[in-house]
């Protein structure tokens, strides 16, 4: 599975973003991380093959999330479904 990594000064948390390349709110999430210099990795699920889609689906469900996009997983435990600025800010301490 090929994640794209984006470096940033705010790198105290491990931030993983599951996105769709066509999704407006996923783009906003990426923009939000970029503007706040948050280090994160992302994957555009719609561009993945079926095997990876299935793995992503299991990962999100196992963490207790729902399979909507964007889904952000912080430090492998906090799952934020949708582009929720307030929740992201609180979880990342920014």
């Amino acid at each position: 599975m090929q994640f794209s990594k984006v470096s940033g000064k705010n790198n105290t948390h491990k931030v993983t973003l599951y996105a769709l390349s066509t999704c407006v709110w996923c783009k906003m999430a990426k923009q939000f991380f970029n503007e706040n210099s948050v280090e994160y990795e992302f994957i555009d699920v719609d561009l993945c093959d079926e095997k990876d889609k299935q793995k992503i689906h299991q990962t999100i469900l196992n963490k207790g999330g729902s399979i909507s996009y964007p889904t952000t997983i912080i430090d492998d435990k906090t799952v934020i479904t949708g582009f929720r600025k307030d929740q992201l800010k609180e979880a990342l301490g920014i």
Binding site: L20, C23, V24, V45
Partner: peptide
């Protein structure tokens, strides 16, 4: 997003869903 999906799948799938 709708345009990309219509070109990709042949129908204007919701850009926010898989």
């Amino acid at each position: 997003g709708l345009k990309v999906n219509e070109e990709r799948y042949g129908y204007p799938l919701c850009p926010c869903r898989l």
